[in-house]
Design a protein around this nucleic acid. Structure first.
Length: 785
DNA sequence: ATAGGGTTAG
């Protein structure tokens, strides 16, 4: 075999006819008797990989393709993936499209090969090698698995689960998910996690959890599950991983581990964790506090101490407790300081309680508190958050006029006498000790006020001028806001102008600035400009973040051209490469809409879309989008074949429509249809009965779309179409590597004992070039009317 | 210890 392979790797390629027929496996002949071997038409051997056997006869090509397909399948079945890859590689190198060849492969063989490797515990490195290999050739590993192969793999995973082979199972999941393999379909995630818990393996549990988008939630449940088992050590280990893996502190995880400390009777540990949280400068939320106090309920002193800390760390929804504390303080004649007042006000403001916040501010003044700019800014910001822009400006006006040396009011100036009167009373009530010093607005104040301008660009601009008069300098935040407002008023050009003028003012736009500008373009339906900004920011070494990606992909409106959809898909792919989890939901919707645009009677379709069937009918994540991306790539223009395997019927429809839309776009730009359109539905052994539901109704759905909706002429594949497989492309031939040789030397019992294997045929459809042409004609005609 | 810009569906 080594010898054979060394010949393979040499560059000399001979046509199959050069292979002595006695070396062929007899079974193979029994299937090829239909066509008599034609005499050598072209005895000249092909010498390089780069010039495939285009001149060889049709018979030779088909014959040798089938031969290599069988050989590859056999090698895979024996788990000899290195040799397998070599075959696939050479077939692809000869010009056969990778996906078409993979469709021919007996996926059951590939599946059982992998399963065998798994059982031999050699799995990870081998599977990884195989998957990387096929991926380099342009085949997604998942394509190697059809229903039967998946079933085999699933069976093996279930066995590992039953036998409690945690490490092996999780290793496998890790490897597979690295290749976008739908691992959820192999074993129930909760079962795997349960097994990890039972085996006391937090490491395996967290490793597995990281394969899922909702990893934070899974981490929490792992921590809690260990807690239920009273296994604090494992829970802590899982918590540690969750802390390392999440970019920002996950309060849910903190709460979970504190609860678990309680469950396991180690309240001191919970305190340590809390202290750690504080040293990271993180504000725990109410839930964390509640749990902490519950766990430490027996130690009243500590609980009280915690309770006191809460009043500084006032967070959202904590206003109630905060107010209670304030009451306590006031009733015990303790006057809170400015920071405490500010925190109290923020607690209310964050909960959207502006009335309460303003009331608190009033109280603060009455109690002799010394307000400062931050405090006012908090108040102003809460008005802006609640869209009470007028109020924000009135408050600011009041600030400018009085400097808050007396009680403020944001009500009508008419009532101010009344308030002054109240103030007088207050002044006499409170021991008038503190002198109130007026304080100046800051850049932040103006930034907040600019936000309060809504879409009034000129007002915002005037504020920026006022800022300068006061000796304050606008910062990059001010500029970002100005861009946002200008764009919000529909003035994209103006927004771009501001972006450019930032440089002159000495400011570098940052991620947020660019994201804002991109948002402006997207909202004003200028995706082209949005993409150019996206390119520009990357050129300036500014890394887009999740918000940036979401913003540019968010454009919900219909994308006009093929180019725009291609750009969109490429952003999507970049995003995944950058390690962000894209929200497929939007993009799927966008792609679907774009594709459905090919159909004329859109009103009819809209109802169908509105009926809400689509959410339920999508297969493994990202397979659809990758498929569409693959088919819309410009380089793909020549080969008109669509591989629908692995897709649901809804997805299959979208992919077919995408290709049709691409054909249409190209037709408009002057490129007419060059060939029939091939649609690969799946593989099937010759003579085997087609199970109706095997392909989930994909065939029916696609037929309905093509024939009924679009009135295209569709030819179904039978055994007759086998002759057409790659009739125009060459197949490499390696006379020294023979199927029988593989069978003989592999020593596999299946090899000699198995019944004759049937040749595999592609189940596929062919849409004729003529009918596509007519369809385009009809469309053009309809659109000019 | 307190403040300001871009986002997130079901």
């Amino acid at each position: 075999m080594r010898h054979a392979l060394s010949i393979i790797s040499s560059s000399t390629v001979l046509p199959p006819s050069a292979t002595p027929s006695r070396h062929h496996h007899p079974r193979r002949h029994s299937h090829s008797t239909k066509t008599k071997p034609t005499p050598k038409q072209n005895p000249k051997p092909q010498l390089t990989h780069t010039s495939p056997l285009l001149s060889s006869s049709r018979w030779d090509n088909r014959q040798s393709l089938m031969y290599h397909t069988k050989l590859a399948s056999k090698l895979a079945e024996d788990g000899r993936f290195e040799d397998f890859l070599m075959i696939v590689e050479s077939v692809v190198a000869s010009g056969v499209s990778a996906s078409e060849f993979s469709a021919l492969l007996n996926s059951k063989s590939v599946g059982s090969g992998i399963v065998r490797i798994i059982s031999e515990r050699k799995l990870n490195s081998v599977v990884e090698m195989l998957f990387n290999g096929v991926r380099n050739l342009g085949i997604e590993p998942v394509q190697l698995f059809d229903g039967v192969a998946m079933e085999l793999l699933r069976g093996e995973c279930q066995r590992l689960l039953k036998c409690g082979e945690v490490e092996q199972l999780v290793n496998l999941m890790d490897t597979l998910s690295g290749f976008q393999f739908p691992i959820k379909e192999l074993v129930e995630p909760s079962d795997v996690i349960k097994l990890c818990i039972n085996k006391k393996s937090p490491n395996a549990a967290t490793r597995y959890a990281q394969n899922f988008p909702h990893v934070e939630i899974l981490f929490c449940s792992i921590i809690l599950e260990f807690g239920k088992e009273r296994d604090l050590v494992s829970a802590l280990e899982a918590f540690e991983v969750s802390r390392q893996k999440s970019s920002s502190p996950n309060m849910h995880a903190y709460r979970a581990i504190i609860d678990v400390c309680g469950l396991c009777g180690d309240c001191m540990k919970s305190r340590v964790i809390y202290e750690e949280l504080l040293t990271c400068n993180v504000n725990p939320n109410t839930y964390v506090f509640n749990s902490l106090m519950n766990v430490n309920a027996r130690d009243l002193n500590y609980t009280l101490h915690i309770y006191k800390q809460m009043e500084v760390l006032a967070d959202a929804k904590m206003w109630k407790q905060a107010l209670e504390i304030k009451e306590d303080m006031v009733s015990s004649c303790v006057i809170p300081d400015t920071v405490t007042w500010s925190s109290l006000i923020r607690a209310c403001a964050n909960s959207g309680l502006i009335e309460q916040a303003i009331k608190l501010f009033d109280e603060m003044l009455q109690a002799g508190g010394q307000p400062n700019a931050q405090c006012l800014n908090i108040l102003l910001h809460s008005c802006v958050e609640a869209c009470q822009y007028d109020r924000a400006f009135r408050l600011f006006q009041c600030w400018k006029e009085t400097g808050f040396q007396q009680t403020i009011t944001d009500n009508n100036p008419k009532n101010s006498e009344e308030y002054v009167a109240v103030d007088q009373v207050n002044k006499t009530c409170c021991v008038s000790t503190t002198m109130r010093v007026p304080f100046r607005p800051t850049t932040s104040t103006y930034n907040i006020l600019m936000k309060a301008c809504g879409t009034d660009y000129y007002r915002a601009k005037a504020l920026m001028g006022e800022m300068k008069i006061l000796g304050l300098s606008p910062n990059h935040i001010s500029w970002s806001i100005l861009i946002d407002i200008c764009g919000g008023s529909g003035n994209v050009a103006g927004a771009m102008h501001i972006l450019r003028s930032m440089h002159e003012n000495g400011f570098q736009p940052d991620v947020i600035t660019y994201t804002t500008a991109i948002k402006v373009c997207v909202e004003n339906k200028n995706p082209k400009l949005a993409f150019s900004l996206f390119v520009e920011m990357k050129k300036h070494q500014i890394k887009p973040n999740l918000v940036t990606y979401n913003t540019i992909l968010r454009a919900r409106n219909r994308y006009g051209s093929l180019l725009e959809v291609q750009q969109c898909l490429s952003v999507y792919q970049h995003m995944r490469k950058a390690g962000y989890k894209p929200n497929d939901y939007y993009l799927k919707q966008l792609i679907e809409e774009w594709c459905e645009g090919v159909i004329q009677n859109r009103h009819e379709r809209k109802d169908q879309v509105a009926s809400g069937r689509r959410e339920t009918d999508f297969g493994p994540e990202s397979l659809l989008l990758e498929k569409v991306a693959e088919h819309l790539q410009e380089s793909n223009g020549e080969s008109l074949s669509i591989d629908l395997r692995g897709l649901t019927k809804v997805e299959a429809r979208i992919v077919v429509l995408a290709v049709l839309r691409k054909i249409k776009e190209e037709y408009i730009t002057g490129n007419s249809v060059k060939d029939d359109l091939l649609i690969i539905l799946g593989v099937q052994e010759l003579g085997a009965r087609i199970a109706k539901d095997e392909n989930g109704g994909v065939r029916e759905a696609v037929m309905k779309l093509l024939q009924h909706d679009l009135e295209l002429q569709v030819l179904s594949s039978g055994s007759a179409t086998r002759d057409n497989i790659r009739r125009d492309k060459g197949i490499p031939v390696y006379p020294n590597l023979r199927l029988e040789e593989v069978l003989d030397r592999s020593g596999s019992s299946q090899a000699s004992g198995s019944p004759a294997r049937r040749p595999i045929i592609l189940q596929r459809l062919r849409v004729t070039r003529e009918s596509l042409y007519h369809w385009l004609q009809r469309k053009m005609h309809a659109s000019t009317r």
